[in-house]
Simulated assay, not measured.
Amino acid sequence: MGFHEVRFPANLSFGSVGGPERLTDVVTLANGFEERNTPWQHSRRRYDAGVAMRGLDDIEKLIAFFEARRGQIHGFRWKDWADYKSGGARLDVAYEDQLIAFGDDVTPSFQLVKTYRSGEHEYTRPIAKPVRGTVKIGIGGDEQKEGVHYEVDTATGLVTFMHPPNDGERITAGFEFDVPVRFDTDRIMVSVASFQAGDVPNVPVVEIRV
């Protein structure tokens, strides 16, 4: 089992369906009230790439990608077109998009995160697969320069500063990111309707922890 730092062809994931899922245990008590708990700290995403297949060329790319990953064995990157930026979908990435931490004069490395807010509640999602060349970092409202002030590990989402940020300074980030996934099947069933078009009814993909 491994992870290949390669992205599923973005033109094939465009048009796929999917999104986050949660695991919730619901117990109904004798008085009719409920107790709800979850063993998951973080959500997990599922997608179906099959609906995005448009022709034989797409199917050939899919089969080659599937075979190179050995089915479910190796993970890979997936672009979720509905959620792949630190800020708004129609906005450019900016270094103040997300607050990721506060400096403490000691810690040099910080995990990229994205916070989802609704009303008074929020959820903070770790970002492990930022896209190379898209990460922008700020300290105390000033943009920093990659390779001079910090380095980014695109395989883990860790940002490491050359010098630990000062105590209390806001560390912000903007970035594009992929989702670490694997195929959720060991079988690709293809029906070729004609020489110019094919049909892939189901290509399930599921997020993995890395």
Rank of each mutant, 00 (worst) to 15 (best):
Gly174Glu: 00
Glu67Pro: 08
Tyr116Lys: 07
Val192Leu: 15
Tyr84Gly: 07
Tyr123Gln: 09
Thr115Trp: 02
Val179His: 00
Gly15Gln: 05
Val27His: 11
Val190Cys: 07
Val179Met: 03
Thr134Gln: 05
Gly87Val: 14
Thr24Glu: 13
Ala128Ser: 14
Asp199Asn: 15
Gly18Ala: 04
Gly141Asp: 14
Thr28Lys: 15
Val93Glu: 10
Ala101Gln: 02
His4Asn: 14
Ala193Phe: 00
Arg22Leu: 11
Leu29Trp: 05
Glu146Met: 14
Phe195Pro: 03
Arg7Thr: 07
Arg22Val: 15
Ala49Lys: 00
Ile139Pro: 00
Glu143Ile: 12
Gln41His: 08
Glu143Lys: 05
Asp178Val: 01
His121Leu: 09
Gly71Glu: 09
Tyr123Asp: 04
Pro164Asn: 10
Ser194Leu: 05
Thr160Tyr: 09
Ile208His: 03
Asn37Phe: 12
Val17Met: 06
Glu96Gly: 07
Tyr47Leu: 00
Asp80Lys: 00
Arg90Pro: 04
Phe195Ile: 12
Ser118Lys: 15
Lys145Thr: 12
Ala128Gln: 06
Phe3Arg: 11
Arg70Leu: 14
Gly32Met: 07
Thr107Leu: 13
Thr28Gly: 04
Thr115Tyr: 10
Gly15Tyr: 01
Phe195Ser: 12
Ser13Glu: 03
Ala173Lys: 11
Ile188Pro: 01
Lys129Met: 05
Ser86Ile: 08
Phe8Leu: 09
Thr28Tyr: 05
Phe177Ser: 03
Arg209Tyr: 08
Gly140Cys: 09
Gly50Asp: 02
Val106Leu: 11
Phe183Pro: 01
Leu99Arg: 14
Ala101Gly: 02
Pro20Ile: 04
Ser118Trp: 04
Trp81Pro: 01
Glu120Gly: 08
Asp92His: 10
Phe66Asp: 04
Phe33Lys: 15
Leu91Glu: 13
Pro108His: 08
Arg46Asn: 04
Gly75Trp: 02
Gln41Glu: 13
Pro9Glu: 03
Glu21Asn: 14
Ile137Leu: 00
Ile208Trp: 04
Val152Gln: 02
His42Trp: 11
Phe110Gln: 06
Lys129Ile: 04
Asp167Leu: 08
